[in-house]
């Protein structure tokens, strides 16, 4: 019985600083939505408002259509995963996971059974008796997740859940957390500044900038059809090519680097969105090759990301090249 979350015109200010300027967001039951933004965008503030750890100046938050604004965090039936995990250092793994059950006065038998279920769910079935201090970073995160889910909360809130993990473990846990979230079917709001994490884990991404939502949509939508220049450059890399139509006022084309290929034969006919310029830098990145080009007309930096390798001899710095757009129909035009 997953629960929908409705956020309505939430405003928060710390003194003169407006951190959230009226945010609306509706999250469907069982959906995982990621709040993505740079530091200071207000994403963590919004999560804390949903949790009740912070009081909004105005606006409302509702779970399943019922306002939770006047409920304390402990009465909202949420699971919160902290960036630092906030495991209780004086309790064992099992005692940590059992804590929310104890707070709800479940009997000892239920506590033991549910705790074991939760530890099995996160693949730590054998670790119940261990001290928190003996666990690795990844194990701590699993315990924290098991604890957050133990009391069958209505909503799961993740605050920069992967920030304390190294890159390899982070990728593994992104998939793992997503699996568990799907298995449990719990409505989830996650906060991150890592766009790859947002793309990997989310049903939808909500991009925040300076306290305002600038775009909400599936990862594909946000990447392929960014709402504005900010989203275009924030989510992945983008070449913003100005268009001039006959009237003189054109839009801006968003051409992703992988949609450009590099040609040294300038005599060939130019396609749409193509540009000429001189090579600035070529760098090899394993599966792909990145070519930076200074545009002839605007002097701006354009980037192409080419699959495989390129002819390095023809791409010495200063060499004249043309960037040709591979799939013009995938180019999104901002007006």
């Amino acid at each position: 019985m997953a629960v929908g979350v409705d956020i309505w015109q939430v405003k928060v200010a710390f003194g003169a600083l407006e951190v959230l300027k009226g945010v609306d967001l509706n999250i469907a039951p069982g959906e995982l939505v990621t709040l993505l933004g740079a530091s200071g965008s207000g994403k963590s503030t919004l999560l804390n408002v949903v949790a009740g750890l912070l009081q909004a100046d105005s606006g409302d938050v509702a779970f399943d259509g019922r306002s939770v604004q006047d409920l304390a965090p402990r009465d909202r039936n949420i699971g919160f995963l902290f960036q630092s995990y906030a495991l209780f250092p004086h309790l064992t793994v099992a005692e940590n996971v059992a804590f929310p059950l104890r707070a709800r006065h479940r009997d000892k038998k239920t506590q033991g059974r549910v705790t074991q279920q939760m530890l099995d769910l996160v693949h730590l079935g054998e670790a119940g008796g261990r001290k928190v201090s003996t666990l690795s970073g990844g194990q701590r995160q699993r315990v924290a997740l098991a604890r957050a889910l133990a009391a069958e909360p209505a909503v799961l809130l993740l605050d920069e859940p992967m920030a304390a993990l190294d890159k390899h473990l982070r990728e593994e846990m992104q998939v793992e957390v997503r699996r568990i979230q799907r298995d449990v079917g719990i409505t989830t709001i996650s906060v991150t500044h890592d766009q790859t994490e947002a793309m990997t884990m989310s049903d939808r991404i909500a991009i925040l900038r300076e306290g305002t939502l600038v775009q909400v949509g599936s990862p594909e939508e946000c990447y392929m059809r960014p709402a504005d220049r900010f989203v275009a450059t924030f989510l992945g890399e983008a070449n913003l090519v100005p268009l001039t139509d006959r009237a003189g006022s054109g839009g801006t084309a968003v051409v992703r680097p992988e949609n450009y290929t590099v040609e040294t034969n300038l005599a060939a006919p130019a396609g749409p969105y193509s540009a000429t310029g001189t090579v600035r830098l070529v760098s090899y990145q394993g599966a792909r090759c990145r070519v930076e080009v200074t545009a002839e007309t605007t002097g701006e930096l354009l980037v192409a990301s080419v699959a495989g390798t390129v002819d390095r001899a023809g791409l010495a710095p200063g060499a004249p090249v043309r960037l040709r757009c591979l799939e013009p129909d995938k180019v999104h035009v901002l007006t």
Partner: peptide, 15 residues
């Protein structure tokens, strides 16, 4: 003390 311990306990339903 880690201030998040107090918040964590709150979100876990503890009075």
């Amino acid at each position: 003390l880690d201030p998040n311990l107090h918040k964590a306990a709150q979100t876990l339903g503890a009075n």
